[in-house]
Amino acid sequence: MSIVTSRDGGVLIVVPGQRLDTNSAPEAEKRIASEIEQGETRILVDLGLTDYVSSAGLRVLLKATKQLKQVGGALALCNINPQLQEILDISGFAMIMPCYATVEEGLRSLRA
């Protein structure tokens, strides 16, 4: 799995690969934790390339959300496929991690 990061203003955009699951989650967790340790406080996770997120992937996102909250920051998700969005809504995870339709909307929210 390859994770691509970029920066737009004060927001770090993280783009995971096709699957964020038990096998790929450790690398994603390490990468995001490293960014937070280096001072990132606002992270937008662009799931536009990600077909599948398991509970292990959700753990990575929840952990980052918690870590960022502790330093006054925030994490948001965007570009989520409709099936994953439905599952995030049903399970209540969307209430913990704000979800936006596009990168632009996510950036706008994190900069507000």
């Binding site: 398991s54 509970s55 959700l58 753990r59 929840l62 952990k63 918690k66 599952i87 049903i90 399970s91 209540g92 995870f93 209430m95 913990i96």
Partner: peptide, 18 residues
């Protein structure tokens, strides 16, 4: 508990919802 699901229970929680 959605606020405390970092360690255990996320998988079964999802299964129960699906």
């Amino acid at each position: 508990d959605l606020d405390d699901m970092l360690e255990r229970g996320r998988g079964l929680f999802l299964i129960r919802n699906l």
